[in-house]
Design a binder for these strands. Structure first.
Length: 603
RNA sequence: GGGGGUGUAGCUCAGUUGGUUAGAGCGCUGGCCUGUCACGCCAGAGGCCGCGGGUUCGAGUCCCGUCACUCCCGCCA
């Protein structure tokens, strides 16, 4: 072209305003929408920056070609910026006061009929969305989410660097680490029969960096785990803000990361409030009692109390029997729920049975002070008033009860607490509500195997050190292990690490592992610990989950540009896929597949 | 591995108690339309009702199996 304009664009599609009236401009973008009036066609041209209306009428020789271009084709438009008349201004777009009168049009790339629409907010099935991810990513919501993700990561990186954290990359091809998930394995060509593992987390590397004298490390680290997906768990791979600090206590770690998280959530959280620092610290045991989970949603105002003693040897036989067998009873007081109709209680009871709980007992405390329900009928009045006192119940409230074996009752009371909250719309909105869960047990009992196991990863420092391991019941030993939770979502877990060989060997011994196992599994790290290791600790908040909360998305795939589906398949790229026999031979591999189970993975 | 939900036009969905020729909106194709911005109007094409089996005179609908997607449990921080 003979003008001096850039071959593709002089302006973006979000740029033109009244100030450009009369200018000759060039825009490139996708045809977002087309309104064809027969002798007059409007095209909304879209790029990442906005929409601009372009117009052409029958008098132009280009008219026919413009009329036939399909939506989502990419075109370059050259023309004059013209003011819109008052009646035709579109206040809903930035460029709505002007339009471009098309004088030249180049079709850069024409689009086929679309499997899903880019414009509009119709919902599409997830397999279509994943297969045509590039179209989905053009759409407003997902595009915004990925932009948000980028900004969040930049902000996190800046905040970490400003605090003196050093960003270090660690290997992707490495050895299996002890997180406990399945590893993704990569066969080695140079060492037939041997495999690399993709890191489940850079756990050992960050500890090695501490031993290497780096005082504060961080990384936006990819982590790979071959485990099944959930709505909040991306299959295959995800990202963590992995960080570690030398010469720190647990409180030092909290004080370092709280301002980063609070800062990011304030920066991108819109009008949501963020928990004031310092975030509450809740001991694991307390969390399990009060909330029935170690990732409590503190926007839920309900709490759980133990009322086992008020049912022991009481008139309500079912619970008394469970208690005799070693079980417990937990109570949830729900303010105002006494006014709910009978059907409300029945519905909850049905739900409880469906969830595998025995049921959900209740006592209704009427406005008149009388109690109602099957439990109230059978339980002694003094025991009822004991419960009333213990739970702080007032007239008009209802108290719900869960009874069973300790672990099961605890878990189920947590589910019931959430259910009641949702059912009665008690959850406060507009908050990012943070807390730390601290004082996790170092070990737990595997009921089936009757064996003591590490309850988290084996790298945590036991509270009380070697002495605690030697003198206490292992199940009473707590670790300097902590989780950070926001709105019921576990953002990360971390620990003050065990940097002492002797304590580590002892810890493994309690979990039933011989010294030789430790030596074999973590030889690299043990060796490092023998040459001067600083006390250190850290954590690793999940990036995807942070963005998911900030974007207010219920599903983690909504904040990942190219996620895999639930079965860890990439429908767009066609992964995983078969490879040529020659490649297998090179790696010294021969397939030994289980009986034919064809999954047509054709794209 | 187990449980729940879903599967009907390119897409999103409706489809009654089992009953004749399976519908709508969007998209697509053609026609009309010079001020729309969810443009409008008219016409049309498009269906292995996921797949296989069964019950029945008759199945999109009921039963069994299977596959796919999704949510949950297991698993996983």
């Amino acid at each position: 072209m003979s003008d001096n304009l850039h071959p593709f664009r002089s302006h973006t599609c979000g740029e033109l305003s009244r100030g450009h009236i009369g200018e000759k401009v060039r825009l490139s973008g996708w045809i977002h929408a087309k309104r064809d009036h027969g002798n007059l066609v409007f095209i909304d041209l879209r790029d990442e920056f906005g929409l601009t209306q372009c117009v052409i009428d029958i008098s132009s020789s280009l008219f026919n070609s413009v009329e036939t271009v399909r939506i989502e084709s990419v075109i370059t438009v050259t023309g004059k910026v013209v003011e819109r008349s008052n009646e035709t201004i579109n206040p809903s777009i930035k460029t709505g006061h002007v339009e471009v009168h098309m004088e030249a049009v180049v079709v850069e790339s024409s689009a086929d009929v679309l499997p899903m629409l880019v414009a509009g907010d119709q919902e599409f099935g997830e397999d279509i969305r994943l297969r045509y991810r590039f179209l989905d990513l053009r759409r407003n919501q997902l595009h915004k989410n990925i932009q948000l993700r980028s900004k969040v990561i930049s902000s996190i990186r800046r905040r970490m660097t400003d605090q003196g954290f050093l960003e270090v990359q660690t290997p992707i091809l490495t050895a299996s680490s002890p997180e406990g998930a399945r590893d993704y394995l990569v066969p080695s060509r140079n060492h037939p029969g041997e495999f690399y593992a993709l890191p489940q987390a850079p756990q050992q590397f960050k500890q090695l960096l501490m031993v290497s004298g780096f005082d504060k490390y961080f990384q936006i680290a990819p982590c790979f785990r071959d485990e099944d997906a959930r709505a909040d768990r991306s299959p295959g791979e995800f990202y963590q803000l992995d960080f570690e600090m030398a010469f720190v206590t647990q409180e030092d770690v909290f004080n370092a990361i709280e301002p980063v998280l609070a800062g990011v959530f304030l920066e991108f959280g819109g009008d949501h409030t963020v928990t004031k620092m310092p975030f509450p610290r809740i001991p694991y045991k307390e969390a399990m009692l009060k909330y029935g989970t170690d990732k409590p949603d503190l926007r839920n105002p309900l709490t759980i109390q133990d009322v086992t003693n008020s049912f022991r040897n009481g008139g309500f036989g079912l619970f008394a029997k469970i208690i005799d067998a070693g079980g417990i009873v937990r109570a949830i007081r729900v303010p105002g729920a006494g006014n709910q109709p009978r059907s409300f209680f029945d519905k909850l009871n049905d739900w409880a049975r469906q969830e595998g709980g025995g049921g959900l007992g209740y006592i209704i405390f009427g406005e008149d002070g009388n109690t109602k329900g099957p439990i109230a009928k059978n339980l002694e009045t003094e025991k009822i008033s004991e419960i009333e006192t213990k739970t702080g119940t007032k007239n008009g409230d209802a108290v719900f009860f869960v009874s069973g074996e300790v672990g099961e009752a605890e878990r189920f009371s947590g589910l019931a607490r959430e259910r009641l909250c949702t059912e009665l719309s008690l959850r406060s909105g507009g908050q990012f509500n943070f807390c730390w869960i601290v004082d996790y047990p170092m070990f737990e009992l595997n009921e089936e195997a009757g064996k003591i196991e590490f309850s988290h990863n084996p790298f945590s420092m036991p509270q009380g050190g070697l002495d605690a391991l030697q003198t206490q019941d292992p199940l009473d030993v707590m670790a300097y292990q902590y989780d950070i939770v926001c709105n019921g979502v576990e953002l990360s877990s971390g620990a003050i690490r065990n940097h002492r060989e002797d304590i580590m060997v002892k810890a493994f011994e309690i979990a039933g592992y011989d010294r030789s196992v430790v030596e074999e599994e973590f030889g690299g790290m043990l060796r490092a610990f023998r040459f001067g290791a600083p006390p250190h600790g850290g954590s690793a908040p999940g990036i995807d989950r942070i963005v998911m909360l900030l974007a207010n998305e219920p599903n983690i795939r909504e904040v990942i540009a190219f996620p895999m589906n639930q079965r860890a398949e990439d429908l767009l790229m066609g992964a995983p896929s078969k490879v040529d026999d020659s490649r297998l031979r090179e790696l010294g591999l021969k397939l030994n597949l289980p009986k034919i189970k064809t999954s047509p993975n054709s794209v």
